[in-house]
């Protein structure tokens, strides 16, 4: 990867998203810090995986980056332009460069639109391409993702889950974005179809020089498609760096626990996952100090009092007092 500041695509600095919770009309508001002080750098053509369990804030993070939500703190720069609080025209401009692939291809496509109309919709919304050319481009994109021109005239219910996800991807690519965010892109698909979509994503990345941010709870999928990975626990990144570095030698106890909990698809490598105890804490009342300490086998008095700051260790960034 070439260095230099100019190919920096996305810079997320100290990003926070706080939601207000009010349990009763006159009770004082409480807050949930869904995303808390997150830093991410993504270069052109790079792919980043965001991993974490449900409720850890990974989807909120994606929605902030896409500016479907306005963050309550920190900044987001896309191509060097600050879009943290962008509105109107500036925001529409920014959205051309970043698109979303949704998790559930059954819920995210309008059942009353034909495939090519679905792909044309972003073109109609954000460009002034004449209708005929927009149609042609939509059909070309559908062919690119492996559907036929005849299928372009069909409605979503006439496609299988994998084909629908192909439409979702074609739709995301319609505007030639630089960044594609995919939130659990294959978790709603059958196992035998997942490989088709993952391979397609890899091909498109090579062809268009795309950058991906892939959100998943499946570490094997992250390893397969991503260069770098960020492990999120309760709104904070606990470990971030190159996929191989982190997966081969995790430093944060949570990363270790996650990796150990994945059942290895090889019966020759039987090992019982050393299960970490307990559940994810309630995000509206996070434990003091390091949020992972109640479940952590290495926790000490220090962890209960002081949240660890991220530091560089063996080529990755890790937030743990005891990582060595």
């Amino acid at each position: 990867m070439s260095g230099g500041k100019d190919d920096m695509l996305l810079e997320v600095t100290d990003l926070s998203m706080r939601f207000a919770l009010r349990s009763a009309p006159f009770k004082p508001k409480r807050h949930v810090h869904a995303v808390n002080g997150i830093n991410i750098r993504l270069r052109q053509g790079e792919t980043l995986g965001i991993v974490g369990e449900s409720g850890c804030g990974k989807t909120t993070l994606a929605r902030c980056i896409l500016r479907l939500l306005e963050p309550t703190g920190g900044s987001i720069k896309l191509n060097g332009r600050d879009i943290t609080h962008a509105k109107g025209r500036a925001l529409r401009e920014a959205r051309r460069d970043m698109q979303f692939v949704f998790q559930d291809p059954y819920a995210s496509l309008d059942p009353r639109m034909r495939a090519f109309e679905l792909v044309r919709e972003p073109l109609d919304a954000l460009t002034d391409l004449p209708r005929k050319q927009a149609d042609e481009r939509a059909i070309a994109l559908l062919e690119k993702v492996g559907l036929t021109a005849a299928q372009a005239r069909q409605y979503p219910h006439q496609f299988s889950g994998g084909q629908r996800q192909r439409i979702g991807i074609a739709r995301a690519l319609a505007l030639n974005p630089k960044l594609v965010l995919a939130d659990e892109p294959v978790s709603a698909l059958d196992v035998s179809v997942r490989a088709q979509i993952l391979n397609l994503m890899a091909d498109l990345r090579a062809e268009f020089g795309l950058s991906y941010i892939v959100i998943s709870h499946d570490l094997a999928i992250i390893e397969h498609v991503c260069d770098r990975v960020a492990i999120v626990y309760l709104g904070r990144i606990v470990e971030q760096g190159a996929v191989e570095t982190i997966f081969n030698a995790p430093k944060h106890p949570y990363t270790e626990a996650l990796l150990a909990a994945i059942p290895d698809p090889d019966p020759q490598q039987r090992r019982r996952a050393a299960d970490i105890q307990g559940d994810l804490p309630n995000p509206s009342a996070p434990p003091p100090g390091c949020a992972f300490h109640p479940r952590c086998p290495k926790a000490t008095a220090l962890c209960k009092q002081q949240a660890p700051e991220p530091r560089m260790l063996d080529g990755r960034e890790v937030s743990c007092h005891h990582a060595v």
Binding site: S192, R194, A195, L219, E223, N248, L259, D264
Partner: peptide, 18 residues
């Protein structure tokens, strides 16, 4: 064969297609 495997790749090795 269609299931990606964790840590199946040596460091620096190119990823294979599923």
């Amino acid at each position: 064969g269609s299931v990606p495997r964790l840590r199946h790749r040596k460091p620096g090795e190119k990823r294979t297609r599923l």
